[in-house]
Amino acid sequence: MTTRPDLLESMKGAKRFDLKRSFWEPRSLRSLLLSIGAWIVALIASVPLISVLYMLIVRGGRRLNWEVLTELPPAGFEEGGGFGNAIVGTLVMVGIGGLISIPFGILAAIFLAELGPDSQIANAARFCAKTLTGLPSIIAGVFAYAILVLVTGTYSAPAGGMALALLMLPTVVLTAEEALKMVPQNMKNAAFGMGCTHSQVVSKIVFPTALPGILTGVMLAVARASGETAPLLFTALFSNFWLFENGRAELMAPTASLSVLIFNFSGMPYENQIELAWAASLVLVLLVLVFNSLSRIIGRSRI
């Protein structure tokens, strides 16, 4: 007698227990809408990149030829011309930046990861490196201006390179530290067990094992530096001439770079310059992408 209502109750419940998905139920509808929303957001976020790439290929590609890669920038009203000196300038200044920041950054990373990871100076240096990651690139330019341009009295490639070095440094230090820390303790123990000094453990085992990871970071830093403009604006300035002429390098003089050329030409009222700015952008993006892909390829080849 008492069970009957219970049974009925449970049978009523059985209908509500239907395990099939109900499309029109509010929560599954809401879920669907949110998923569609997420898709739309992702697609919208891809639009700018596709637009940038399209413009680069169409507008930049149209003008890209041997001439623009090898000639000097034209004056305002001139036709033709190119940005050969700017490519050289960019490569030279990124090279200077790398020469300063890479060895110095890797050595510092070795200290942070291996030789004194828990020391106070390591914590302070790590904190500083992290802070430098967020340093506005224009401030790097102001710093190089203050310590090099004001002192030497001239805009120059080393001043530009110095500003770039400051921006590359934190990437190099932090990624190298990560890579060095990934080396298994096991392997280090083996080396210590053989009677290696700590430096020998680092130079014979830890560094070679971490090298791919370190190079990944280096390539990322180089890629980022090649695209930088702000730090070069008033350290290297710009130049309409070759950096190397008659076998001599005019390093202590204003130096051209692709990025500053794009900036300068983008504001000019001449169609020729604007076309060159697009072509230079294409070259610059390709340059950056080459370093980026190198970094990825090296990263993947890791054991």
Binding site: L49, V52, S137, A223, I262, S266, V285, V288
Partner: peptide, 8 residues
Amino acid sequence: AIPSVVYG
């Protein structure tokens, strides 16, 4: 990866 100046 796209440089700032290219965005400009």
